[in-house]
């Protein structure tokens, strides 16, 4: 946390988003974009970041961040199944939603290398 108080309007102008920035973010988010999409999204996302510049108009000083309307606390209970129906049925139904399932496990292509 910074100790100095930020003065409203004192922040230097933000560098605009580039298509390289957005390509990097898309990669992190596991999304593939065409060149046309990349150009469109870059402009649109940059406009939202312009909107975010409005946040600099407020003196946030040493105000702490809020992640949640209440302070989050752990809620403990006994470790017993709370679902109203049979655990075995539940397992089969959950597995049934899997795109590819084998021997009661979700199956994916190789994590390292490529499938032959």
């Amino acid at each position: 946390m910074s100790s100095h108080h930020e003065t409203p309007g004192a922040s230097p102008p933000r560098a605009h988003l580039t298509t390289d920035d957005v390509a990097k973010v898309a990669k992190l988010a596991l999304l593939e974009l065409s060149d046309a999409e990349l150009a469109t999204f870059t402009g649109q996302l940059d406009a939202v970041l312009d909107l975010a510049e409005q946040l600099n108009e407020f003196d946030i000083g040493d105000v702490p961040p809020t992640a949640h309307p209440f302070g989050l606390v752990n809620v403990f209970r006994d470790d017993v199944a709370a679902i109203g129906h049979d655990a075995e049925v539940m397992r089969e139904e959950a597995l049934a939603a899997g795109p590819e399932v084998e021997a009661h496990q979700f199956k994916v292509p190789p994590a390292l290398g490529e499938a032959p």
Partner: peptide
């Protein structure tokens, strides 16, 4: 695409 929902094929997990 692992546990539920749409899966499109790819040569590896990523």
């Amino acid at each position: 695409g692992v546990r539920y929902g749409l899966r499109k094929p790819g040569p590896n997990t990523a």
